[in-house]
């Protein structure tokens, strides 16, 4: 999704204002005119200035506010984006409760079936094998604490 420069410019200006607003309470170093707020205020000011320039450029352009410039149908893009976000959010929320092996297997099965469009058995087998490889590499070899979740009671 491509936006007109006036939209991205205004977002930049807003970001700059937020940076300055949140930096104003920061105290200077003792007996100095500079401190933790100096750099953020300079950067916020520059963001406002350059964001303003981008907005001005957008105002003089006849480009539409938002336009989809891709060969892929927009519906398919949104569905894929939703699937990616949902997968990541589900991973974050479910792994501490259910555990990595189950969440990873289920998510991978769904994603593989959804994107490769072969049969469920193939998707599930690939998901189980991939989860096992990730578990061995990260969980065992690299000692990353991947949660076992509800499987902890089964394994131990």
């Amino acid at each position: 999704m491509r936006s007109n420069d006036k939209i991205t410019g205004l977002v930049t200006v807003t970001f700059g204002v937020l940076v300055i607003t949140n930096s104003r309470g920061l105290a200077n170093l003792p007996q100095q005119d500079y401190g933790a707020g100096t750099f953020p205020i300079v950067i916020g000011g520059l963001l406002i200035a350059f964001g303003g320039l981008l907005t001005l450029r957008g105002l003089s352009s006849s480009a539409p506010l938002m336009v989809w410039v891709n060969d892929v149908p927009i519906k398919r893009f949104y569905l894929t984006l939703l699937a990616i976000i949902a997968a990541i959010v589900a991973y974050i929320l479910l792994v501490p409760v259910v555990g990595f092996p189950i969440v990873s297997t289920v998510l991978l099965s769904l994603l593989l079936y959804g994107f490769y469009r072969q049969n469920w058995t193939l998707a599930a087998c690939t998901a189980v094998a991939s989860t096992a490889v990730i578990w061995v590499v990260f969980g065992r070899l690299l000692q990353v604490p991947l949660e076992l979740g509800i499987l902890e009671k089964v394994v131990y």
């Binding site: 593989l112 490769y116 991939s130 990730i134």
Partner: peptide, 19 residues
């Protein structure tokens, strides 16, 4: 097939970011 590769990379990214 990229349909197989991309979901695997996605899971790998999540584990990698956590690690």
């Amino acid at each position: 097939p990229s349909g197989v590769l991309f979901p695997l990379i996605l899971i790998f990214c999540m584990v990698g970011a956590f690690a």
